[in-house]
Design a protein around this nucleic acid. Sequence first.
DNA 1: CATATAGTTCAAGACCGCGTGAACTGCACC
DNA 2: GGTGCAGTTCACGCGGTCTTGAACTATATG
Lengths: 198, 198
Amino acid sequence: MKGYLWTGGDPGSQSTVPPPDNGRLAPYEAIAVEAVGNVIEFWGFKRNQGRVWGLLYLRGEPLTAGEIERELDLSKGGVSMLLRDLERWGVIQRVRVPQDTVWRYAAETDLVRMVTHVVEEREAAFVTRIRADLSEARRLAEAAGGVPPERLRKLERMATLAEHVERALRLFIKTSRLDVAGVLGAFRDGALGRKGDR
Amino acid sequence: MKGYLWTGGDPGSQSTVPPPDNGRLAPYEAIAVEAVGNVIEFWGFKRNQGRVWGLLYLRGEPLTAGEIERELDLSKGGVSMLLRDLERWGVIQRVRVPQDTVWRYAAETDLVRMVTHVVEEREAAFVTRIRADLSEARRLAEAAGGVPPERLRKLERMATLAEHVERALRLFIKTSRLDVAGVLGAFRDGALGRKGDR
DNA sequence: CATATAGTTCAAGACCGCGTGAACTGCACC
DNA sequence: GGTGCAGTTCACGCGGTCTTGAACTATATG
């Protein structure tokens, strides 16, 4: 079992078997949370980052680390790191409820923006690099001499190809942004008691 | 060392240290091959699948498994599996040179088509599934009753979002295809002594 | 100041995918 | 039939990533 909250607690009170994990997530919540987890993983982040954000978003009200830990069955340390990441990305916000001592965390609605942003950076940089490599290869090949022109043509073609993919990629991101903008509008008012400052 | 060709061979003849891997790949070849490897890995395939294809494409003429093994410093078994995969995807072709007993492998020019194809399948199916999950979650939530309408709205929004991402994705693939088509045309004649039958 | 709880950090370990290399099959040639 | 090489299959191990859990710091409370 993972829980780590009641350090000295007597675990035998509720039931002998570790309570089957997700403390109390309603089935529909579990599904939704997993869905977000999958999406986010798909885009190259950690699954659990998505799950945490999903939970926070769905719940609407800020949760404490302990609650997240329990609901999502994660370790204390893990939650801490996940929250830090998400905060750095700007997709959750750390809030302090009046006269309460613990931090709570609330979902920003910018998950999409973050994803497209990061993806943009990552992918674009990557594809650009590839292109550069291929140019370099062609340069080298030319310099070396004795390389059949046939091959030079191939290298050139590969580079061109990369260029085109790059263009398509950028277009995708832009489109995705635009296309999603409308949704985001509606989305935005779903944010709860915090201002969307970023 | 990886080489595995001369089973009973005396490895001491050439030099005491294992010949520094990539048998004879020209620097420019190495770069190009790695570039393809990176791209392909980026799209969720195995890096070495890309490297193999890259080598075959660049070389133009069909190579034997042994040659690939040596040039790319892979194991016999590995090469076999990689080639099988690539052949299944239809991006390389197994050819038998007249009066020669070994198989040789030649690059098809359809790498791009394959990538977009597979990506299409994978991603689209994936995103679709997410959407389905989210709908399901909403259904469950409604059925369960007692779920604040606030939440229902959120679930709905997530689903809508997924839908939009899906649309953008499809568009991307289509664009990429079109955009790349021109290049492919030029590409195509780069294929050597084999018919582009598929 | 002592104690308890919230939060952070990081080494150790679980987990997973890939490639290796050995055993095996198949085929050709002698 | 036997030898040798091309090709396939698969259990194992290596290397990477993610998570855990314990030690540690910070902060509040009596």
